[in-house]
Design a protein around this nucleic acid. Structure first.
Length: 310
DNA sequence: AAGACGGGGAT
DNA sequence: ATCCCAGTCTT
């Protein structure tokens, strides 16, 4: 029976040793934080920082991004991965401009209603940009709770219960609860890491249920990621990479990644990219969306038929 | 509840 | 070769 988790000990550690990250600078702003959270969805911090700073120089406000074309957004997204996020962020900027007068909303409900924003990002913005008292749960938080509280070596698959588990740990004070959210993520990122946790440097060592139990291997219930090599995802990535590099960001369909080993797979990738709004196609030409004259002819195939709020 | 969806760095 | 990364959306 371990001691209960001491949030203020963790907060003290965070205030002493947190990394200096751009979105933690005072006055970074809700828009900068929102953009950073989009980019940080499944992309490591070190890869995000340079792209974030370039993005915010180009589009310092939601209205600025909303006025750009989707092609501009996809191009600036560069190689961050999951490029649908660039389209979603562009859409969210338009929604903020029209529905919220250009101000990033400060409550979870309105944030959740924006395209591309889920449980994590909505609460991260509410907490880190506006100081709300809400549980923020990401992969780091889930791992720290699994170990320090539940005594497991790895977290189970994500579930709604994660939110309640984090809510139960939050300090009452708004300010401390916001710091605690950031501190749990920081601890998971730099000390309580997935592969080789540095328990010797952990401020929660004395309270950790997993350490108290002798660091047992409790198994890994998470689902395994599909193979990337040879996948449709790789084909999509190759097509998009080629278009980002092409003159006027367009190309003849049969000349895009001409050496791709599976032509049918490449064509499938093109169809799905059109469906996602990441490219547009007419005749035998494909290009980044909204990047030139006479936009769209067959772009809206099966999308928008099923997209509703939760 | 399970799959799709990038791409690069670490082990 | 596999794992991991401040997730979200669709079925």
């Amino acid at each position: 029976m371990p001691a209960p988790l001491p949030p203020l000990v963790l907060n003290e550690w965070f205030r002493r040793s947190a990394r200096d990250l751009p979105w933690r600078r005072p006055g970074f702003g809700a828009w900068g934080i929102l953009v950073s959270e989009f980019m940080l969805q499944q992309t490591p911090v070190t890869r995000v920082i340079p792209r974030l700073e370039a993005w915010l120089r180009t589009w310092p406000s939601p209205a600025a991004l909303a006025a750009a074309t989707p092609a501009d957004a996809v191009r600036e997204w560069a190689n961050l991965g999951y490029p649908r996020r660039a389209i979603w962020l562009h859409r969210a900027a338009g929604e903020i401009a029209t529905r919220h007068a250009g101000r990033v909303p400060d409550d979870v409900e309105h944030l959740l209603a924006l395209t591309g924003i889920g449980d994590y990002t909505a609460r991260a913005v509410a907490v880190f940009a506006y100081g709300k008292r809400e549980p923020v749960v990401d992969t780091n938080t889930r791992r720290v709770i699994a170990r320090a509280v539940q005594g497991r070596s790895q977290p189970g698959p994500p579930s709604r219960g994660d939110l309640a588990a984090m809510a139960a740990l939050l300090p009452e004070d708004d300010r401390e609860s916001a710091v605690f959210n950031a501190a749990m993520m920081e601890l998971g990122a730099v000390i309580c890491t997935a592969r080789a946790p540095r328990c010797g440097e952990c401020p929660l060592l004395d309270a950790c249920a997993w350490v108290g139990a002798g660091r047992p291997d409790t198994g890994d219930l998470r689902r395994k990621q599909a193979r990337y090599e040879g996948s449709d995802r790789q084909a999509r990535g190759a097509v998009l990479r080629a278009l980002r590099a092409a003159p006027r960001h367009e190309a003849r369909t049969e000349h895009v990644v001409p050496d791709w080993p599976d032509a049918a797979q490449r064509d499938r990738a093109i169809v799905s990219l059109v469906d996602d709004g990441l490219i547009e196609a007419f005749d035998d030409l494909i290009r980044l969306p909204g990047g030139g004259p006479q936009a769209s002819s067959s772009s809206e195939s099966s999308e928008s038929a099923s997209r509703a709020g939760r």
